[in-house]
Design a protein around this nucleic acid. Structure first.
Length: 421
RNA sequence: GUGGGUGUAGCUCAGUGGUAGAGCACUGGAUUGUGGCUCCGGUGGUCGCGGGUUCAAGCCCCGUCACUCACCCCA
């Protein structure tokens, strides 16, 4: 309609939705605080090189999805496509490792990827993330996964599936890549075009292909888990044992490989199975990136993290909270009573009540209707005689009863009625 | 980037070439000063945009834009 619209894939969040957003964020903050995570806030804009180096220069994200521009001819900057790179950068930049052996951070904010929008996928989307530096795991890995599942449950999202895998580390990872390529090469021609391309860029992704022919081949491919070295195998076994001990249900899925290059050892994702989710049903994903801090110029500190997609959580939530209804709605019978309505409103709000009104001078019927549609518990009617007597007609809209009270007693009467026994 | 679907009132949508509609929402009234239920009335439209065919186009044709879903990728 209008010629001026928000940018494609970047949505306004109107007050009717913000209540649910806040509920979600507050729930996350509570869970994070309970686990000792502190909030970190980093810039939305970073040097492009940060993402190229951390996420990987052959990933889709940096190859074609970043919003990148030149800052007045000086530097290449990019809008952050995810949160981990910035967090690690901040961790290194401020030598946080020197202050404490373990650092736990969380963040909440918008991320930007220039993809074609679809259900559950936007160009500006929002993530809540966790970062842990200094603990090699695997116990903390299990704790983070369990924490994520508990968080989802606190939002009423219980129809989920946890998938875990291990990518190994160092030499074992390189060895597996070789073995996989050796297996795929003879069958190259049978693979779909995308997979032939994947063989060059990130062969692990072939394991994740949904094209039936490719999936058939992938099923026979050598398992990454068979190529883990002793330490990696032990780490992964430790993760599973800890998850078992916590009673967190999960499945080991060797096809979970994730799209960012920096992961090592533990990776996981949680998919939502219910709600209004479309094809994009990954609610959260994460893993371990033990080499990243060092590769960014910091000390050799192991790290682990996850990112949760807020918009997808909202799609998956079975019930979303709405804004609380006003305690009272003040009705000025005629325009002449608007000053009295103004004063009564100020007084009741000072007493801690949520009070609405309509000061346009609408009809009584209109104001009463509005009291009802807003869900106000009380309608407070001021007419000529009430103003003269210093009283208010206090109507309980639920019980349909009405009493006339002195102005000074209204706040207390409402408090008494709305306070749960 | 590729493919499909949809664009008509603020919202959800009907309208099968011949006067632009319904429900919801908003609003006035039925009830001198009382909401919900019901009834009567009212406000609200460049039918996404441009071109074409036709006596006549919301409807048919072409183009274009937007939104949306899927692929891809991922949160």
């Amino acid at each position: 309609m209008s010629t001026l619209r928000s940018v494609k894939g970047m949505n306004d969040i109107l007050p009717s939705e913000v209540t649910a957003w806040r509920h979600l964020e507050e729930t996350f903050r509570t869970v994070a605080a309970a686990h000792g995570y502190g909030e970190v806030r980093t810039p939305l804009l970073e040097p492009t090189a940060l993402f190229v180096r951390s996420i990987g220069d052959t990933t889709d994200i940096v190859e074609k999805e970043m919003y990148t521009f030149e800052d007045q001819g000086e530097k290449q900057l990019s809008l952050r496509p995810e949160g981990t790179a910035s967090a690690v950068r901040a961790f290194v930049q401020h030598s946080v490792h020197a202050q404490s052996p373990i650092t736990k951070w969380f963040y909440i904010g918008p991320m930007y990827r220039r993809e074609r929008p679809a259900k559950g996928r936007l160009r500006q989307f929002h993530q809540m993330g966790l970062e842990v530096y200094g603990d090699p795991g695997p116990f903390v890995d299990a704790e983070m996964i369990d924490m994520a599942v508990s968080f989802l449950a606190a939002l009423g999202i219980t129809d989920v599936e946890v998938r875990v895998n291990s990518l190994g580390s160092g030499a074992s990872r390189v060895a597996y890549r070789e073995a996989l390529l050796a297996f795929l090469e003879p069958q190259r021609a049978v693979l779909c075009a995308d997979c032939q391309r994947r063989m060059e860029k990130n062969p692990l992704r072939v394991l994740d292909c949904k094209v039936p022919t490719c999936a058939e081949i992938a099923a026979k491919a050598p398992s990454l888990l068979d190529h883990l070295d002793e330490a990696d195998t032990e780490h992964f076994a430790g993760l599973r044992a800890a998850l078992d001990a916590l009673g967190t249900p999960y499945v080991v899925d060797p096809s979970v490989v994730r799209g960012l290059d920096y992961y090592s050892r533990t990776i996981f994702e949680v998919r939502g199975l219910g709600g209004d989710l479309g094809a994009q049903n990954t609610l959260l994903g994460g893993g371990r990136y033990d080499g990243m801090v060092k590769s960014m110029g910091g000390p050799d500190v192991p790290a682990l993290g996850l990112g949760i997609g807020i918009e997808r959580l909202l799609l998956a939530m079975p019930e979303k909270p709405t804004a609380p209804a006003p305690d009272a709605f003040i009705v000025a019978l005629r325009p002449e009573q608007r000053t009295a309505a103004l004063l009564l409103g100020k007084q009741l709000r000072a007493a801690g009540l949520r009070v609405e009104n309509d000061l346009r001078g609408q009809s009584l019927k209109s104001q009463m209707r509005r009291s009802d549609s807003l869900g106000a518990r009380f309608a407070l009617v001021l007419g000529e005689s009430e103003v003269a007597a210093g009283t208010v007609q206090v109507k309980d809209l639920r019980a349909s009863t009405q009493v006339e009270l002195p102005v000074g007693e209204v706040a207390q009467a409402i408090h008494a009625a709305i306070t749960p026994a």
